[in-house]
Design a binder for these strands. Sequence first.
RNA 1: GGUCGGUUGGCCGAGUGGCUAGGCACCGGUCUGCAAAACCGUUUACGGCGGUUCGAAUCCGCCACUGACCUCCA
Length: 490
Amino acid sequence: MEHKLSIYNTLTRKKEQFIPLHSPNVGMYVCGPTVYGDAHLGHARPAITFDLLFRYLKHLGYKVRYVRNITDVGHLENDADSGEDKIAKKARLEELEPMEVVQYYLNRYHENMEALNVLPPSIEPHASGHIIEQIEFVKKILDAGYAYESEGSVYFDVEKYNKDYNYGKLSGRNIDDLLETTRELDGQSEKRRSFDFALWKKASPEHIMRWASPWSHGFPGWHMECSAMGTKYLGEEFDIHGGGMDLIFPHHECEIAQSTAALGKETVKYWMHNNMITINGQKMGKSLGNFITLEEFFTGNHKLLQQAFSPMTVRFFILQAQYRSTVDFSNDALAAAEKGLQRLTEAYNRLQKIKAGQESTVDVKGLRERCEEAMLDDLNSPIVIAHLFDAAKAINTVYDGKGTISGGDLVELNATFKLFMEDILGLQTEMQADGGSNDAMKAAIDLLLQIRQDAKANKDWATSDKIRNELQALGFEIKDGKDRTEWSLK
RNA sequence: GGUCGGUUGGCCGAGUGGCUAGGCACCGGUCUGCAAAACCGUUUACGGCGGUUCGAAUCCGCCACUGACCUCCA
């Protein structure tokens, strides 16, 4: 494969050339949602970031197996014994079966992802469907001597592991610091050290999500599922593991420790992390209660939102920043993204109507190469978008009759625009105009506009303005062009 | 307190030792009966103080502010 894709590896804190273990096959694993609530803007970031990577790797010719898990068990409210499973808690509060909660929010998650034009992953495994694999994985760690059983639970022996390997290599921590900074929580007496983490937890009597194991009736620790499912579907060594930056510690650090302890080798070659979306400079998150769900963005139904924002606007907004930068939410920023996307969409639609001339007076050469170069540099989507805006300017120049484009350039421009806009950035470009209207209504509107046109010809401004104003009041947008009037329903 | 990051023009957001990022907004213009829309053009930068250099927003040091993680979090 003739390219030099470089991606930032959190493990080495450098951009590295991407070389798959088994080209042309690529394996990537991304931490998916814990389905106990609606997805918010923050959840869209990794989904879109790794969707972009998925799409681009396929564009480069790789055969990608993309695994994104669903956490439906084992994710506790906190690390203490009193910590309640997030799913179980929601089920208790709403008097539902835990799996009812999971199914409900999973369906809604899928609806959101589809709206955002996020491609489904190759495999979407559920933690609860892989209890056996997780138990087997815990056994391996016990056999290797890096875990201990305590009152029906199994804990990872971080101190022992750290003597042979390096606990903290991903997050840059060392266990001496952790000893000083780890808060004492209730019920930690079972653990030898405060930083040891659970591989298997014995279920308390009221804990309803439980499975049989050699140690107790219980449930797997949160970090276990990714190690077990990742290696099950992608092998003991695979290429890419992704997720949000907030998962680096402890989740991904623990995953590395588990896999290394069980298998005696590094499992993941490239660790990739998207940055956070902030709101008023602070991370948008469930625990802070400052999140806006995707549904609320799409409907505009949230006190912080001045208007609704379409899924494509949200996607474009996220892609306008490089995935390792924080993105700050604001109505102004979203509104700017909406207008920018409109500009690109409009240009793309005009491109279909442009006729080729003898030669090109606009410079569209090298667009494909420039976009390609930006993507190869750690998925620099904002640069790709900037290049597309340059192309939009050229398209508008030709559309306005102030320049010409040759047949060859036109074909190439069209292909490149479609490739990056639709296939790689995943931005849908169909016009919203006339949406939801039927033929009879269209004909009626056209008739009204024809009457207005006649009135204008007779300088009957009162009539023409009345038609325009009344239609606008009804929610129509009237755009007078040079030759004809276009309309759309907002 | 520890670890890691950030600070770019009115807003968002790239980049980088010398060469216009881009978008949105503003302003000016074209078009229009008027307007809207559309299109074109254009202004405002690199937190502070030192240092390295022919040259730094870009490298180094100090300071200030700010964020993430260290408890669940995308």
